[in-house]
Amino acid sequence: MQGTLDLLILRTLIFGPRHGQGIARDIHTDSSEELLVDHGSLYPALQRLEARGLIAAEWGVSSNNRKARFYRLTPRGKKALTNELSQWKRMVAAIGRVLNARKTKPV
């Protein structure tokens, strides 16, 4: 779903700056290993979010002493995340209601 990956990335960055591989790993582990992101497809999404000013990036040194490009949430990104999250939740709830509707209504 368009934007789902964006949402996941933004959500991951709420805990602080991460580099690309870290984000991919986080999404993988946070989803109890349910969601496997093709690492390659992560980068166009990051590129997009950066272009929209929702995240910012900077080269830095990672915990294992390697150069890495770190992404962090901008204030605009935080606001967007809050918005998207509540929208997402409403939609999930709505979809859930639709999917459960058959049981309660007489046919």
Partner: peptide, 25 residues
């Protein structure tokens, strides 16, 4: 103005990604 990244910078990021992943693995 956002500085435009050139493709070498992006290549470096991919290399960094692969190195990190290899280490994690």
């Amino acid at each position: 103005m956002r500085r435009k990244r050139d493709s070498r910078d992006f290549d470096a990021e991919i290399q960094s990604h692969l190195a990190h992943e290899t280490e994690t693995l």
